[in-house]
C-alpha cells in the first residue's frame, strides 16, 4: 500500500507554533520510516499559526531530505497558471524529482476575497476553469523534451530548438503561449494530486490526476468510489493503474497499533483504495512510524525503504525516471 503523511503546518490550538526545525524533523522522521510522501497544507480554515507558505516551505524541505516525496497545496485562485507551473517545475529540479502539486477542486471563498475576486466563481465556472488551468500547467511541464539541453560550449548550442515546444493555449479563461523557462522535470512531470472532489469533479480527476485524495467513509462506500473512479479513468482512455487513490485517515493516539493496522489492512485488501493519507499530529508521528508501520511491514503490506529516487517511482507511476 502507498502511504502519505499529511503535514498540517498550522499548529492546532494549544500547540506551539511550528518552526522550520520542528517541521524538518517531522519530515525527516517520515522519510526514515519510508513513507511515499508528505502532503503540506497551505491555508488553514481559521487564522493560521504557521509562519510559512507551502511552496516556499517545500523548497527548504527539499534541501534537508533526500528521498521522500514532497507535495504542497497551491490554489488555482492564488496563482496564475504560468507562475504556478514554474514554481513547481523549479521545486522538482531542486528536489531531484520528488515534488507534487496538490490542487483542490473546492473553491475557497477566503482566497477569492483576497485575490481580487470578491464575487468568486460559480461552481461550474470554477470547475471548468480548474480543468483548463490543470491542462495548461501539465502542458507547460512538457514544453521541453528530456534531451533538449545540449550544453555544447564549443558548438555554441545550449539547447536544441526543435526540442522546445510552445504551448499556444487559447481557452475560455486563459491564454498562455509558453514555453516554460524551467527545464524538464527529473521525474518527467511533477505529480498532480487532486482532492475536494464533488460528484461533477470525478471525471476531471479520473482524466487528470496522478493521485486522488478521498475523505474516509465506510468501507463499502470507499469501495464503490474506488471502483467508480477506476471505471471513469478507463472510460477516459487511461490505464486505471496510472493513478493512485488514497483515503484520508486520521490517526488518534488512543488507537491501538493492532486495531489501526487491522483497519488499514482490511480497507486495502478489499481493494477500496491504493493506500492512505495519514493525518497525524506532529507530536504523534512516532506512534505511527514506530508502532503501526512495523506491523504493516510484517504483514507484507508496505515496502521496505525506497527503491527509486523520485516521487513517481515511489508511487509506481510511469515516468519515474529511475523505476
Amino acid at each position: 500500500m502507498h502511504l502519505a503523511i499529511s503535514l498540517n503546518i498550522a499548529a492546532a490550538t494549544g500547540e506551539t507554533v511550528l518552526d522550520f526545525s520542528r517541521i524538518s524533523k517531522f519530515v525527516r522522521q517520515a522519510e526514515a520510516a519510508g513513507v511515499d510522501m508528505i502532503v503540506s497544507s497551505d491555508t488553514a480554515d481559521g487564522p493560521s499559526s504557521s509562519p510559512f507558505e507551502a511552496t516556499t516551505l517545500l523548497a527548504a524541505l527539499a534541501t534537508v531530505t533526500d528521498r521522500i516525496g514532497l507535495v504542497a497545496s497551491a490554489s488555482t485562485l492564488a496563482h496564475q497558471p504560468y507562475n504556478l507551473a514554474r514554481r513547481f517545475a523549479s521545486l522538482d529540479i531542486i528536489s531531484h524529482g520528488r515534488i507534487g502539486w496538490h490542487a483542490t477542486m473546492a473553491q475557497d471563498s477566503r482566497e477569492a476575497a483576497n485575490f481580487s475576486r470578491p464575487e468568486g466563481f460559480s461552481d461550474t465556472d470554477f470547475r471548468r476553469r480548474a480543468e483548463e488551468y490543470i491542462g495548461i500547467v501539465r502542458g507547460l511541464w512538457q514544453g521541453w523534451d528530456a534531451d533538449a539541453l545540449l550544453f555544447d560550449k564549443t558548438g555554441g548550442r545550449f539547447h536544441d530548438p526543435e526540442k522546445m515546444h510552445l504551448l499556444d493555449h487559447k481557452g475560455e479563461f486563459f491564454s498562455v503561449r509558453g514555453p516554460l523557462n524551467v527545464a524538464r522535470s527529473p521525474q518527467d512531470t511533477p505529480v498532480l494530486v487532486l482532492s475536494g472532489l464533488s460528484e461533477p469533479d470525478l471525471d476531471i480527476a479520473a482524466r487528470n490526476a496522478d493521485v486522488i485524495l478521498l475523505e474516509s467513509g465506510s468501507a463499502e462506500s470507499a469501495k464503490i468510489r474506488f471502483d467508480d473512479l477506476r471505471r471513469r479513468a478507463t472510460a477516459a482512455g487511461r490505464d486505471p493503474d496510472a493513478m493512485r487513490v488514497l483515503t484520508n485517515i486520521s490517526f488518534a493516539p488512543d488507537d491501538t497499533r493492532a486495531a489501526t493496522a487491522d483497519r488499514l489492512e482490511s480497507q486495502f485488501r478489499t481493494r477500496s483504495c491504493d493506500g492512505f493519507n495519514i493525518q497525524v499530529r506532529c507530536s504523534m508521528l512516532d506512534e505511527f512510524t514506530d508502532l503501526v508501520l512495523p506491523v504493516l511491514r510484517q504483514r507484507g503490506l508496505v515496502r521496505e525503504g525506497y527503491r527509486g529516487t523520485t516521487l513517481r517511482s515511489h508511487l509506481g507511476l510511469a515516468g519515474g525516471g529511475d523505476r
Binding site: S24, T56, A59, A62, T63, R87, A89, S90, I94, V182
Partner: peptide, 14 residues
C-alpha cells in the same frame, strides 16, 4: 531555462 527565483531562494534560505 533556470530556477524560478522564489523557490531557489527558499532553498538557499536554510
Amino acid at each position: 531555462i533556470g530556477f524560478e527565483p522564489i523557490s531557489l531562494l527558499s532553498a538557499l534560505a536554510v
